[in-house]
Amino acid sequence: MAARKSTSSSSSSDETKSGYKPKLPVTKDQLTSWYRDMLVIRRFEEKAGQLYGMGLIAGFCHLYIGQEAVVVGVQGALEEGDQVITGYRDHGHMLATGMDPDGVMAELTGREGGYSRGKGGSMHMFSREKQFFGGHGIVGAQVPIGAGLAFANKYNENGKVCATYFGDGAANQGQVYEAFNMAKLWNLPVLFLIENNQYAMGTSVTRASSETHLYKRGASFGIPGDEVDGMDVIAVYEAAKKAAKHARDGKGPYILELKTYRYRGHSMSDPAKYRTRDEVNTYRDTKDPIDLCGKKLIDSGWADEDALKAMDKDVKAIVNKSADFAKESPEPDPSELYTDVLIEG
């Protein structure tokens, strides 16, 4: 049985030859950097999966493959100093905020060079410098915390917005609605970004949610919401830009339901019996966010196959370097066991 063909190697040269150049609402630099950012996440996650298979990464490891357009599109719409917070499928968010792949990978392997010096792991990483506030392992807990970061923004009158991500599974947690209520009551500058990848672990949205249009979940609080094609980085960018402006203008929270898809299992030990291989392949073959973005770059005449291949090579080198770093960085010193429990003094 032959393996599925990747669409990334299939050429779209026929279309470029026709000379058709679609008008895009973004610049060449934007789209090129987003393509690269998505590729970094994709290759990073593939490598993480590989290191997990080799026993170098342990415990829970939730890969972001397939959902890359969501974080990259949203990040493109944020400003310097805006905060980002999410749940446990968080590697993509960290890379999108500009955190160093070396430090993220080394945290996955539980080493001293990791962002939390090996004490947090895949689900618990943070960067004050990049305004990334985690990395939360309790489903939905990041939502009121994100509202609290937005509360601090309003209190400090700093004009910043907090991008608060959660999944379709977390969208059924009670505390999410407690946060919605207070966020609108006090008009906090927060974006509630529902990454609807259609499965909460193995339970599909239709089996878990009475109202499956999750962007409507803010209606009873007076929070506007839009449904967005989360596989299209440009669509995500435009929706997030509008939502961020709304929040920054003092009009309060905004909900985006980003329809996306994860190719890999919920975690590494997911037998994937709740969906068909065909379903996964259909997304990968026809809706892949990176392929779609690459096609747009080529159709616009902003890049050719060779340029994309060269980019992939660069990205692979970055990711391989992070894997090397993550293997070579030592385990944390035993004395680290007792540090960072409390701030002393």
Binding site: F133, I145, G148, L149, F151, Y155, M182
Partner: peptide
């Protein structure tokens, strides 16, 4: 009212919101 804030009856929510505010420097 900026610094003395009545919350809805929503302990889980406002405890979490308080944590976020503390992460945010308050």
């Amino acid at each position: 009212g900026k610094r003395v804030i009545d919350t809805p009856i929503t302990e889980y929510g406002f405890a979490g919101l308080g944590v976020g505010a503390a992460f945010g420097g308050l």
